[in-house]
């Protein structure tokens, strides 16, 4: 049996630790962890633009953005707020010569859908999350195809659409494996 005096004392120590002003370094650490998902998303878009000459490199740009938005909206929605997603979409449109604002709308819709499914999706297995992402990515890619076809008044080729969906399905586990590490390490705001 612990005497009440000891309990009161330990509570006071804990409160003091909470009230202590957070140091500037700690705050910087927290901010950098908060910024990690968006910063890495932008960095990835920049790297994908480099001329490596890989086949299907152009398809990688929207697939990567979709995977980032899906994963972080699912596990750490505070780190990738809607304005950041809109900026990402705008960058995609400017880099990839698609109609201005199209990917911004699609990525925001993807984020909305992910946030809506979040409660039910988080306790599920990885396989189900993967299938869910594949479905969302296919829907977003198909919408992009529809929109661009409507804007050009001619059907766009279907081959890149199929490639985009396949790439999204195939690449998600690898990206997720990396993101899960980031989620527990450099992006973990609570560890700051």
């Amino acid at each position: 049996m612990v005497p009440p005096r000891v309990i009161r004392g330990s509570i006071n120590v804990a409160l003091a630790a909470v009230r202590r002003r957070t140091s500037i370094w700690r705050r910087l650490d927290a901010i950098s962890r908060l910024m990690f998902p968006f910063g890495f998303l932008l960095f990835g878009l920049f790297v994908i633009g480099m001329p490596f000459g890989l086949p299907g490199q152009a398809l990688l740009l929207p697939v990567y953005a979709m995977a980032c938005v899906f994963f972080w909206s699912l596990y750490r929605p505070g780190s990738l707020p809607a304005p950041a997603v809109a900026v990402t979409g705008l960058l995609l449109d400017l880099l990839g010569l698609s109609p201005l604002g199209m990917w911004a709308v699609l990525l925001l819709l993807l984020q909305g859908a992910t946030l809506a499914a979040r409660r039910r999706l988080i306790p599920q297995s990885f396989w189900l999350t993967w299938a869910c992402f594949a479905g969302f990515a296919a829907a977003a890619s198909a919408l992009a195809w529809l929109f661009q076809s409507a804007a050009a008044l001619a059907p766009m080729p279907l081959l890149p659409l199929g490639g985009e969906i396949l790439l999204a399905c195939g690449l998600y586990p690898a990206l997720a494996a990396f993101f899960i590490r980031a989620h527990r390490g450099p992006a973990a705001v609570e560890l700051a």
Binding site: A86, L90, P99, L100, G101, L108
Partner: peptide, 23 residues
């Protein structure tokens, strides 16, 4: 924030369609 950003992006699509040189 999400609905507001969505409206903003839809507005951008309209602007982009209306004024091609903006993009």
């Amino acid at each position: 924030t999400l609905p507001v950003m969505l409206m903003f992006s839809l507005g951008l699509i309209l602007i982009g369609r209306a004024d091609q040189s903006f993009a």
